[in-house]
């Protein structure tokens, strides 16, 4: 399988990365090189093989569904580019 520039632009939009026409064209070549490389997996017979979900055979640990941490809003918003009264500020999203 290979991708064209329109597909690269669509994927870039899905990934929320702005790309120029020039970048999209360059990336198309690079992505096709990588997709061409991974195509060799088609040689492998995976009939009846379970996909891996965990490299180490362990049962998922569980804990009580309770609050164990928190209560420091200053720390939570401390690194944000723009905040107001412990809220993150973003451009208006609801008309």
């Amino acid at each position: 399988m290979s991708v064209d520039t329109a597909t690269v632009k669509r994927v870039a939009h899905l990934a929320r990365i702005a790309v120029t026409e020039e970048e999209a064209e360059k990336m198309t070549g690079e992505l096709n090189a990588i997709l061409g490389f991974v195509e060799q997996l088609d040689e492998v017979d995976v009939a009846g093989v379970e996909p891996m979900t965990s490299v180490v055979a362990v049962t998922m640990k569980k804990r009580a569904d309770g609050v164990t941490d928190g209560g420091y809003p200053d720390d939570v918003v401390g690194n944000a580019p723009e905040t107001e009264d412990h809220f993150f500020v973003v451009p208006k999203v609801v008309e």
């Binding site: 994927v11 990934a15 990365i17 992505l31 997709l35 997996l41 492998v44 995976v46 996909p51």
Partner: peptide
Amino acid sequence: ILIGTYVLSAGYYDAYYLKAQKV
């Protein structure tokens, strides 16, 4: 990020990601 988004996107998940996890 683009390769990852592509191989996880609708219609390609089985051909790429699932296959790779089987390998």
